[in-house]
Design a protein around this nucleic acid. Sequence first.
DNA 1: CACAAAATTAAACAATCGTTTAAATCAAAC
DNA 2: GTTTGATTTAAACGATTGTTTAATTTTGTG
Lengths: 206, 206
Amino acid sequence: MGLSEKQVQILEVAEKLFAENGFDGTSVRQISKEAGINVAMISYYFGSKKKMLEALLNHRMSDFKIQLESILLKDITYPEKVDEIVAFVVMRVHKNRRTYKIINFEYSKNSRSINFEKYLQQKDENYKVIEAFVKKGQKEGFFSKKVNIPLIVPTIMGTYFHFYYNKKFHTSLHKLTNEISLDKFVRTTLTKHIQQTIKALLIYAN
Amino acid sequence: MGLSEKQVQILEVAEKLFAENGFDGTSVRQISKEAGINVAMISYYFGSKKKMLEALLNHRMSDFKIQLESILLKDITYPEKVDEIVAFVVMRVHKNRRTYKIINFEYSKNSRSINFEKYLQQKDENYKVIEAFVKKGQKEGFFSKKVNIPLIVPTIMGTYFHFYYNKKFHTSLHKLTNEISLDKFVRTTLTKHIQQTIKALLIYAN
DNA sequence: CACAAAATTAAACAATCGTTTAAATCAAAC
DNA sequence: GTTTGATTTAAACGATTGTTTAATTTTGTG
């Protein structure tokens, strides 16, 4: 699974184009042109277009070690832990938004036989950490017991992505001009909104 | 903009295939085959593949009259109104999930020149109704003033879609087998989760 | 039935798709 | 300098893409 520098550089171009135009909307010739290589190099390096996508997914998912657990070990209050977890998840999906966008679309298909094992494994690990955290908080009386735990992460990530997919709409609503102010908006306003939401849900759900 | 029965039937096939395989992942020959018509009929009826998508979007968005306002006029408490609004929005996006999926992917592109006017107009109308409702509730002291109003709808719709896009993951987690139990899950469990979330946020946000 | 308009068809169009081939270039080892 | 293997190239492959053409069938009207 070791990727050469050149392969990583090609994958970054592919990631950008796949996220922008979709997997089917991107041709291998586009990728090769933008990456400054010959078309045949894609088959040479990855085998096929499909296998190139799988290489990208595995490459991006492999960085995702569970830093969550280190947050949970900190000596801070439960609301503070929620804040840190939300901020961590939001920044992580924001950083890898392009790959997640590709996953969202390809994984929701029935047909295509792309290998999503790494993605699902990571999803499973993350869920289990969150579940343990919430149940502990419930047992200690800090969190409401009426919360649907498996739907907490979808609310965090879903809010981010629905904002991201309608970015053009929201940038005009919030008067965000360039990419930098969008980054800042995510880091501050959007993160804060999700933190408020999840804290209110966990503590006051009825 | 009046569509014949045959045109509507073709659009329904196209909607299903576009949502399943993407716009670029679906060929006009697939659509024509599944709809039992000749390929040339698509150009004949709609002009082009792209214009067919636009016809679909306009067709689906035109049903979306603002039933929200009738909810707001009811003589019920604020939390009850939130419940009804959430249930209404969730059922609406669930019913039109295929079209929304296509929109999410196509609208988030920079390149393609598809007309999203009807979608954006509807989005704008809905936002203004929600905004007025929340501000009224804030003025009357029922809702927290620390809520980011433009991000409420993304939380509602985002939670639904992140669940929907990872449907395969969640159906195994919740042990949902067929399409019917998924429908039921959306109508009951998922709706309830989002209602809890939005109520907690609006009332207790800090 | 006759006529005109609408609907439908098979076939062809050029363009593009992902992939393969075989030759050419490069780099490293001896 | 020669050899060996990896890298890179241009060209070609057949298949499929969206769209158009021109002929045919169907439909409705007088």
